[in-house]
Design a protein around this nucleic acid. Sequence first.
DNA 1: CGTCCCCTTGAGCAGAATCAAGCCTAGTGG
DNA 2: CCACTAGGCTTGATTCTGCTCAAGGGGACG
Lengths: 249, 249
Amino acid sequence: VTSGDRNSLAPWCDSCPLRALPIFEEFSSDELDFMLKFKTAHRHAERGKTLIRHGESVNHVCTLFSGWALRHRLLPDGRRQIVLVLLPGDMIGLDTIFLQPPQYSIQALSDITYCVLDTQLLAAMPLEQPRLAQRLMKLALIEQRVLETRMTVLGRCSAEERIAYLVLDLHQRLSRRRLMNGYGFAFPLTQQQLADAAGLNIIHTNRVLRRLRMRDILTIQNHRAQIHDMAALQRLVTVGMHDGARPLF
Amino acid sequence: VTSGDRNSLAPWCDSCPLRALPIFEEFSSDELDFMLKFKTAHRHAERGKTLIRHGESVNHVCTLFSGWALRHRLLPDGRRQIVLVLLPGDMIGLDTIFLQPPQYSIQALSDITYCVLDTQLLAAMPLEQPRLAQRLMKLALIEQRVLETRMTVLGRCSAEERIAYLVLDLHQRLSRRRLMNGYGFAFPLTQQQLADAAGLNIIHTNRVLRRLRMRDILTIQNHRAQIHDMAALQRLVTVGMHDGARPLF
DNA sequence: CGTCCCCTTGAGCAGAATCAAGCCTAGTGG
DNA sequence: CCACTAGGCTTGATTCTGCTCAAGGGGACG
């Protein structure tokens, strides 16, 4: 890899949010070079666009670079569950390396940019770069842990707790990645999407949000979220949070 | 590995349920030999015993050999969510290779036997046996897919659908692994456990079971499950099942 | 025989869903 | 420039699914 090549790939190498994640901090430079070989493009998509469609094979894995996206499942009768909200730095479709076709859809929540890596190459990678493979495995396991937490929240928590959990989780993930600080942040989910993520109905979601607003805990309006009373919000999710866990990232 | 060694390890090598899973079919014999090195013991535990406790580090990974177990999370206020019911052949604590301590507890649902593998060795394994690492990664990704399905069921399905899904899922997994055939099978979960898995309350669970029994769809009694009307049961979960997915195993 | 655990059933309540309108804003096209 | 539309937000009224409280029954085991 010449320095010329490097520069042309700079967006990924230097500013890709993934780089900031603890898990990638320990990358050696030749592992980085190796990763760079996978990168085939740096693209963007508009809000609402579907990047991966349930049941349709894909031949690339992506890393979200800017903007938000969501991973969801549709039931035949139209019900929908948002499995995970993806933030800059998250991988998209990692499982398609081994499991095709994907059993979920991915949709852009805002205008986004993302890096595209080649699936075929990634699948073979463990043979050449076992350390890298170890890290990807760890990444997958971390995500699994997150899913278990979300599952517990869906199965055992009230509407209020679910909403509180979702917002707090997003706040934490954004903070950890240095994508924000303070208590207000851009929040591109509509109430319907929030409802689909929380496993609630939109009307009830709206009412829960009103209650939280009235109690001066949290306001979500005009595509922005503002946490007024962090302590109270955390109290609401004492529950899910008690995992000293949450080394989500 | 001498043939003497081999024989002494026979329980794992020849009859471990894992061997029957598609994912392990393709094992080469030296990969198998390699795996055998990890095995440190073949143990058993009584019904009710806790194998892994939330927050307490463990230094071994297991494969369930016989009997059922469950993976669950406790909330500080006592609410509990059963994340997954583990059947013979399932791995226990795979994530502890990279993520310590575990964020869940594992409990034996019946008397069980299991193989114990060494965590340290497994963690280093990718460096020596990349193909094996690939397979473990695939295994983790499959489990993740299962969790996403379960999450969708919890977030979007009715009580009846949840119960139906759970039972049907167990039936399928047992069948695929050749651990049963037909429509009746041993079912060691109590109604409370079933409730904790479905994200329901025990009383409601009891009523749903009664309704399913009355409609001649399904009977769960005396630690046995009997599916009377498979078609009807499947209709109830058309929903979750529609993923042409379910290549769970 | 008593205790513990699990299952079962009833009565009443509440959290969340559904049904039905109406509002606001941004974008579009005449 | 205004009318119209579409998407999203808000609210009320009503229904119902699932939860809580309370009590009793049966089997296993010491």
